[in-house]
Design a binder for these strands. Structure first.
Length: 507
DNA sequence: CTATGGCACGGATT
DNA sequence: AATCCGTGCCATAG
């Protein structure tokens, strides 16, 4: 890995050469750095629009031999751009991808599985939508929270998107009938009901179980959460004159737990946490792509920095030639435009360069995480990265802010995720609970983690657990019991809990 | 008495 | 300087 601050050295040399320009350069580079490619697109278009000296061309030809080129130093005549002015290659393949004129391999593997929830749903309902309904659907999908729920009412949609209430309702219903069952519901409760509607009576472990479940969700949702089964049973007997076999409620609850989820999106996206609060656009348009070169041989990771436009951004050579011939005031103006154009390309290059170095370092340090899962993330701080790169920490902050990266397996994660201190620990908590044979209390989990060399307070475990949407241990025990009952399994205890090498605490 | 969740404090991070 | 995060203490529920 190239850790030498080669580029920075050049940059700094440039700094010393000419002060006033240097500060402008710095300011602009930083400005660009903190833009995501979506934002940068607007910025660049504006520049090109206002500055006649800048141009975007579809293809680049060598200034000497006129051959079409992919990257800047012409391979045949090895001539750099005549004046050394920067040219930036904007990758044409991603709608709006850009990469630096360095990396040549052009085989972007079409990863099949990476799909955002919204795209996934849109694909299902797309054909059924009229032209008028499309924007409404897009709006709703964009507003889905990380659990796949949608907080607004049809009336609000209608008002906001200026369509009839009927249209809004229709689109919403379409979405709610789409695949992650229960998606688009307003509340967890509603989501459960929708999902329940999709289930078949035949699947229920006992006749009437589905109806009971519906009653429970509809009328006693609160109490259900509090596990007040006795009270609920009494109310049901009174209100509906129902005969309830002992354990029926528990059975229904267990039925609900097994077949429904209050968070429809999570089932599909595992942990699908869009931690960066619904920045859907950022996650559809990654700023960086990481691919694995030689998959089978566990090959290296290749980092590719995207930008929004296609083609080549450069100083228009004809304009440049003409500019020297002008006279007087005109010449002055043109000179300024030229300087500005050069600045833009340089800064863009600088941004790319910084991003590239940063990502290469991250890719190497977090190889495990990139190829593996959340549990393999090695917590890093921006400060550490800054030191390793010889940059200021605020530079890293800018670079990380609001960007996202596509990983080899198709996941698109916010860049900030690489700096999540507790991600790996949370993941460990999850696997611990998944593999538990007897509900582990928070203390148990903390203990097990300590055995793995991770020292966290019990209170912290509780928080992680909540973040993961895992219920408290005492509730999990009751669920387990209900499961045993309905499945007529022997009541005996299963294998001992996985305490992972720790001493069983004396009772 | 045990297991959790709420509040708030201090230190680290941005 | 503002924010985030882990943690300790305390109240509460079972």
């Amino acid at each position: 890995m190239d850790l030498s601050a080669h580029g920075d050295a050049m940059f700094n040399a440039h700094l010393q050469d000419n002060r006033p320009q240097a500060t402008a350069h710095l300011a602009k580079t930083m400005g660009y750095l903190q833009l995501s490619n979506t934002e940068l697109e607007a910025e660049l278009l504006k520049e090109v629009d206002t500055n006649p000296a800048l141009e975007i061309v579809d293809e680049l030809r060598c200034p000497n031999c006129g051959r079409r080129l992919r990257s800047l130093p012409c391979p045949t005549c090895a001539a750099p751009a005549a004046d050394g002015s920067a040219v930036v290659f904007l990758s044409p393949r991603q709608p709006g991808g850009l990469r630096e004129a360095v990396n040549e391999d052009d085989d972007l593997p079409e990863t099949g599985m990476p799909e955002r929830l919204d795209e996934y749903i849109l694909r299902q309902i797309g054909p059924a939508l009229t032209i008028e309904e499309r924007p409404v659907a897009a709006y709703i999908l964009a507003q889905l929270d990380e659990n796949g729920l949608f907080a607004e009412t049809p009336a609000e949609i209608a008002r906001y998107k200026r369509v009839s209430l009927k249209t809004a309702q229709h689109v919403l219903e379409l979405i709610q009938r789409a695949d992650p069952p229960g998606v688009g519901a307003r509340t967890p409760q509603e989501s459960l009901l929708i999902q329940l509607g999709g289930l078949n009576d035949a699947d229920a472990p006992a006749p009437g179980m589905r109806n009971l479940a519906r009653l429970l969700i509809q009328e006693h949702f609160e109490a259900l959460g509090k596990m007040e089964y006795e009270r609920v049973a009494r109310r049901l007997r009174a209100d509906h004159n129902l005969y309830l076999a002992p354990g029926a409620i528990e059975g229904a609850v267990q039925y609900i737990h097994r077949n429904l989820t209050p968070y429809p999106a999570r089932a599909y996206w595992g942990d699908g946490k869009t931690s960066g609060a619904a920045d859907g656009a950022a996650l559809t348009n990654p700023d960086v792509n990481i691919t694995q070169l030689d998959w089978a041989a566990g090959g290296g990771l290749s980092v590719e920095v995207f930008a929004p436009l296609s083609g080549w951004l450069r100083v228009n050579p004809e304009f440049k030639a003409a500019a020297t011939e002008g006279s007087g005031e005109e010449r002055e103006r043109w000179g300024q435009a030229l300087a500005e154009a050069a600045l833009v390309t340089k800064c863009l290059q600088q941004r790319n360069h910084t991003m590239r170095r940063l990502m290469q370092l991250i890719a190497e340090a977090q190889r495990e995480f990139i190829l593996g899962g959340d549990g393999d993330l090695r917590p890093t701080t921006r400060v550490q990265l800054a030191q390793a790169l010889g940059l200021h920490e605020s530079t890293i902050s800018r670079a990380v802010a609001g960007k996202s990266v596509a990983l080899p397996d198709g996941r698109v994660v916010p860049l900030a995720k690489f700096f999540d201190r507790s991600l790996s620990v949370r993941d460990r908590v999850r696997t611990l609970v998944e593999r538990e044979s007897q509900a582990l209390t928070d203390d148990d989990i903390a203990e097990a983690l300590a055995a793995q060399g991770i020292q966290v307070a019990r209170r912290t475990v509780a928080k992680y657990r909540k973040m993961l949407g895992i219920l408290p241990a005492n509730v999990r025990t009751r669920q387990a019991r209900a499961r045993r009952v309905t499945q007529n399994l022997p009541k005996g205890r299963g294998p001992l809990p996985t305490r992972l090498g720790t001493q069983p605490t004396p009772a």
